[in-house]
Design a protein around this nucleic acid. Structure first.
Lengths: 342, 342
DNA sequence: GCAGGAATTGGAAGCGCTCCCGAAATTTTA
DNA sequence: TAAAATTTCGGGAGCGCTTCCAATTCCTGC
């Protein structure tokens, strides 16, 4: 039965039931050494018997150790976040900590940077011992407890950061298309921010390096969503001099492209080569060539760093850059002799 | 910069800075009416200026309203949980509440029921105003704040519950196979619990109804994992009188089957019909016929119910049963004339 | 011109917990 | 055997907040 007791069992009840003081109970709970073996046993029994569980709020108000780690994630519905989540979850499982995920569905909102601070202070130093922030927009946080960021929009040296070499990854992707003989290569961007601009820079650099003139018509603005992929595909393929390849800022957008393309009667890879970024699990099903972004691994590393920080160890290198890897599937094809556009 | 201030700004700092008492600040924060317009303005300004955010722990220790809803989920890596999560997230987005997800990776552990209570009391009445528990094993919870359960292992009337008609769904699935002419129908079970036994009961009932004798060799014990699907497939297909169809307790297991089968040189649906349960997104990619389990919708309903309960409204019907729907894809085939087994 | 009421505010208790400090009990040392 | 050291435990302050209660000011109306 759901007992709607007015109050849950507190440390006082345990104290009364076991005939010792509240302080002693607290000592047992926190595994302090100065408590008699016998007393400890008795207290532990009573705790078990009463089903007592210490009040997180009260506990964390006094001592800042809660053995909880917070994960602040922009959008739990996007595969990107879920992959990170999996990695974090794995690492947590083998640690002494529990995981608390805080989401606000603010991925699409504009004022993220403002809210992020609020979320951080909501959790950190209150209910969690430290926080991992995924793709933060904010450049800095005020917090009493440690913070680790994953793939921030702007790289700053203030707190440990795990991120992926977006520039290098994008270079590989675009270069791959160039090597296949493509010259009309379109790019569907993500939302503004460091990651996106890095990828954009790579796109431009590789074109320049290959002596391909930059065509603004081939750059379509997106926002990492599936929809922007479908829209982008329609716009780009309606161009008089249509592209032979599309580089999408992330896999989700690439999936949007491939879905739109199907309806337009354009075949991948025969009529259009397509390449994504992130290598999310779904990419496999779409046979999508993509830049692998080891999100799970990054999540695990972030946890490691955070726990180190929580436990007072110094972290020598704040910035951890992880290499990407091009995963070739069947969404790209060499452009045989007809390099001269359509 | 990450300011590692010893203490964050408290209500006292705000009080001092705005020249009023702590009580007044609290009144402003909680939007009580009895505060002069002018004072309120001034306090609000100071709050803004100092970047003050009230301490969740302290606040929730006194008043039980935190405007946070907890989701206790057994395993964030399984698509089932993720679908529920999406629904919950959607519903939360349009409410006044924020979402806190608590996971412990205990899906595979045995003593879940024991731990669940701990997790509930950890959050509820402390940091959250109410909690949604996904697939609880426990029959009852002691809690000061409302609880809603999704798909519990055992249906109890103690708290609002949203669940799906497993029996009916499984009946449809097995009946579909029978109608296709299959008589050697295997079943790979999930872990013990209500959901599984309901599906099992349906399996037996439909066989009986069709006059097909029950063969214990065709029931393989699983645990909802991918692995048990691959193992199950190997065992079942090694049988002298091998099944022509497999009903898997969930899609994950079905996916395991289809992966094993590929290696064994058995083709789906030509040599083996396969049907799953839950209709997770991946099912589409595997062309898996499955019983649709509207998890997102269930998540949304659970949030609605919980908010009602939190806000003191009475919930007329505690148990909400949601119908399933058979989604036919290409993993099943009629067994033409050769119904006489191989 | 003064009692009674409303509007506004401050004081203080206490939520459940941790932890410092010192007391009591016990053991060790001279 | 007395003093000192050690072990074990209780008292109590206080974390940041809400909320009851009471105090203060300022209007009303007679």
């Amino acid at each position: 039965m759901t007992k709607k007791t007015r109050r849950l069992v507190t440390i006082h009840d345990v104290a009364k039931a076991s005939g010792v003081s509240v302080s002693t109970i607290s000592r047992v709970l926190n595994q302090k050494s100065d408590v008699a073996e016998e007393t400890q046993q008795r207290v532990l029994e009573v705790i078990q018997q009463l089903g007592y569980s210490s009040n997180l709020a009260a506990r964390s108000m006094r001592s800042s150790r809660t053995y909880m780690i917070g994960l602040i994630v922009p959008d739990v519905e996007y595969a990107y976040s879920l992959e990170v989540l999996k990695g974090v979850n794995h690492a947590i499982a083998t640690s002494d900590y529990d995981l608390l995920i805080y989401t606000t569905g603010s991925f699409q909102k504009q004022d993220t940077a403002v809210h992020e601070q609020q979320y951080v202070s909501r959790l950190n130093g209150t209910v969690t011992d430290g926080v991992i922030v995924v793709t933060p927009s904010a450049r800095s946080f005020s917090s009493t407890a440690p913070i680790v960021s994953i793939d921030p929009h702007v790289i700053v040296e203030n707190y440990p950061t795990v991120y992926v070499d977006h520039y290098q990854g994008a270079v590989e992707a675009v270069r791959y298309l160039v090597e296949l003989g493509h010259r009309r290569i379109a790019y569907i961007t993500g939302r503004s921010g460091m990651q996106n601009s890095e990828r954009y820079r790579a796109y431009c650099d590789v074109l320049a390096e290959a002596g391909i003139p930059y065509d603004p018509d081939l750059v379509h603005e997106g926002d990492y969503s599936i929809d922007c992929g479908t829209v982008g595909a329609r716009v780009l393929l309606a161009l008089p001099d249509r592209p032979t390849a599309i580089f999408a800022a992330n896999d989700q957008t690439a999936i949007g492209v491939s879905e739109a393309v199907e309806q337009l009667g354009v075949r991948i890879p025969d009529d259009l080569s397509l390449i994504g970024f992130d290598n999310i699990p779904e990419a496999r099903f779409y046979q999508l060539t993509s830049v692998d972004h080891p999100l799970m691994q990054m999540g695990m590393m972030a946890v490691e760093l955070l726990i180190k920080a929580i436990e007072g160890q110094t972290i020598e290198e704040t910035i951890t850059k992880i290499p990407t890897r091009l995963v070739v599937r069947k969404s790209c094809q060499a452009l045989a002799e007809n390099v001269k556009s359509l």
